[in-house]
Amino acid sequence: MDRIPILKFGYSLLVTIQVDMHDQLAMTLQDDLTSRLVKERARGVLIDISALEIVDSFMGRVLNNIAAMAKILDAVTVVVGMRPAVAITLVELGLDLPGVKTALNVERGMDLIRASVEDLSAADDDAE
């Protein structure tokens, strides 16, 4: 497989990572997500990593880049399903995911995106 599929769900983009990605595949995903965000005017990106056995510094950088890009395009990024062993390992590795919100599963992740989009539009209304 040379591309990870991106689904549109409401105002969010949904990605389920099901394979151990090589670096180029991860970079392609980053680029594809950026162009889809622009094209679909999506407000949220939900990335399901429950199948991922590890997140190393490269993958962490990709997640951070996606979140930074999404932020510029006014969208929030939520990573769901991170395995406990992966979370423990990330801390010891020393990797921070500052712009990335995390949630237990897809449903909670969607709630998080909905809440933050509503927050943002409330703030917009105040500003007007």
């Binding site: 151990d20 990605m21 090589h22 056995e53 590890i54 062993a85 423990i88 390992t89 590795l93």
Partner: peptide, 29 residues
């Protein structure tokens, strides 16, 4: 692609050695 292969072979060996899931995850990472 070889980096992916390294992760896979390390996982197989670490599991065969009886390392816990957390220890497997650490050495694969």
């Amino acid at each position: 692609e070889d980096i992916v292969r390294v992760r896979q072979i390390v996982r197989t060996k670490a599991a065969a050695a009886g390392l816990s899931i957390v220890d497997q995850t650490k050495i694969i990472t």
